[in-house]
Write a protein that binds this DNA or RNA. Structure first.
Lengths: 122, 122
DNA sequence: TGTGTACTTGCGTCATCATGCAAGTATTGC
DNA sequence: GCAATACTTGCATGATGACGCAAGTACACA
């Protein structure tokens, strides 16, 4: 199959290779903020998250809103406090689906190597 | 644990949440080119890949070089033809490691949902 | 009702990056 | 050697995006 034919061939990987998801993760500041939230393991307010980073509070607010828009975080408002929490299940599932979809296209000769790292040795 | 404490706490997710990887995937043109190569399942020349996309040839050349720099593609040169191939195993492993690392931080109450999609029902 | 806290939004600025064109390099075949 | 092919690189341009400041909104509490 030529790349031109491949382009016309519709596979799960097409939807999963969604640039919008990666756009949310490609900024160093956002990656850091997300890392804090992931490791924290509980919903956090904007004020709390802002303490992780030396950027302006407004920047943190915007980054968190963007991550929410990408489906990576979920926001809940209680009074004047907005709590952001990591969508662990959704994020893990999306990443694994992408790995599965890529693997699905992987030629047989390499398929074994692809499976490493999933419920096996790493 | 506060986000500030979490920031100081070193976990596998810190390294895996690498913005450079996502930077390579966040451009729509690059995502499309990578999608073609993934679905194609074999090494392709720059000329072949360029047929997938309506952008200038030089743009494709640059995108492929960038994807190689990110470790997503591998390049081999035979004569005047450069063939790019998807690093299936590395890419899948990285994505799954990231999912594992995120899951590792996931509170117990949500952990079950995180595991869905990996060697289980989806 | 006023004051303080928590967050969002508008705006200007600076940096990065995607793109196309043109020119350059490398390699093949005649 | 010369032309053609395959690709890379330099450069200018336009678009996008990250950032900080300042102003605005929403809510709680006295």
């Amino acid at each position: 199959m030529s790349p031109r034919q491949a382009a016309a061939c519709c596979r799960p990987v097409d939807d999963l290779l969604n640039p919008d998801l990666f756009k949310a993760l490609c900024d160093p500041t956002r990656a850091r903020l997300l890392g804090c939230l992931v490791k924290c393991g509980r919903p956090c307010s904007v004020t709390e998250v802002a303490e992780c980073c030396s950027v302006d509070f407004s920047v943190v607010s915007r980054h968190l809103a963007l991550l929410e828009g990408a489906g990576i975080l979920a926001a809940t408002k209680q009074g004047r406090v907005v709590s952001y929490s990591v969508q662990y299940a959704h994020l893990c599932r999306t990443l694994r689906k992408l790995a599965d979809a890529i693997e699905e296209c992987c030629p047989a000769s390499e398929a074994k190597a692809c499976k490493e790292g999933c419920c096996g040795k790493r």
